[in-house]
């Protein structure tokens, strides 16, 4: 099942530089995609375009068959809330809220689950990522690896079709980085979901089922497509 379809996507800045040039790709459920490339090659820019955080200057992005071109900011926000999950290099947890409350933010914002079910869902996610004991703790009381796992739990809160990660292991040691990639591989394995991650670590990229290599904003290689 094709979750995401990018067609000839180009992103130019108003000042001139081209971040992404004519990228075409499609991602299906069960795929674990690593986007690699030297710094400044447009990896993150491509990820933001695929994640509907940014709009392409040319081309179109389809999410679950739906063309997102021309959708309003609010409509894109609603899609991100319900269908997408983000993990960044920095954990971006809200410092005033406990790990569980951080995970609950997207669930509460979506407002589909009642409070009890929402908390149960939050605890289940934290438990799945080995953080059951950390639920009540504030982010500053957690280690770097734990924070990033809380951030992953938050990204998964509304059961997204697509998990997007931008250098999620950039601030982690090798062991924690490997753990995060194991989690991603596990998440993709169910087949319902796809994971797309940007990384500059070739070794970690090797764990993905598919590797897209970017140079100067262009896709130069795409290995392992459909191998999920």
């Amino acid at each position: 099942m094709t979750l995401l379809d990018a067609e000839d996507v180009t992103r130019k800045l108003p000042e001139g530089p081209v971040l992404v040039q004519g990228a075409t790709l499609s991602v299906s459920g069960g795929e674990f995609v690593a986007i690699t490339g030297p710094s400044g090659s447009g990896k993150s820019s491509l990820l933001y375009l695929l994640g509907l955080l940014d709009r392409p200057s040319v081309g179109r992005v389809r999410l679950e068959g739906r063309d997102t071109t021309g959708l309003s900011g609010d409509a894109l926000a609603a899609l991100r809330l319900a269908r997408l999950g983000f993990v960044f290099q920095f954990h971006f947890l809200l410092p005033e809220f406990s790990a569980l409350d951080n995970v609950l933010i997207p669930i509460r914002r979506r407002g589909v689950l009642d409070e009890r079910t929402a908390r149960a869902r939050g605890m289940e996610l934290l438990g799945m990522l080995g953080l059951a004991d950390a639920a009540a703790k504030l982010p500053e009381q957690l280690s770097g690896g734990m924070r990033q796992r809380v951030a992953i739990a938050r990204a998964l809160a509304n059961d997204p079709a697509l998990l997007l990660a931008d250098e999620p292991t950039g601030n982690l040691d090798t062991k924690n980085a490997a753990a995060v990639f194991d989690i991603f591989a596990e998440l993709a394995r169910s087949g319902e979901r796809a994971v797309i991650t940007v990384t500059h670590d070739a070794e970690l990229a090797g764990r993905a089922t598919r590797r897209i290599h970017l140079v100067d904003g262009r896709i130069v290689s795409d290995e392992g497509q459909g191998a999920g």
Partner: peptide, 16 residues
């Protein structure tokens, strides 16, 4: 700014 950015990426609208 970081919290605002993450809230927006999570799907909070400008109005939110």
């Amino acid at each position: 700014t970081r919290d605002i950015a993450i809230l927006k990426s999570l799907g909070f609208t400008e109005r939110d």
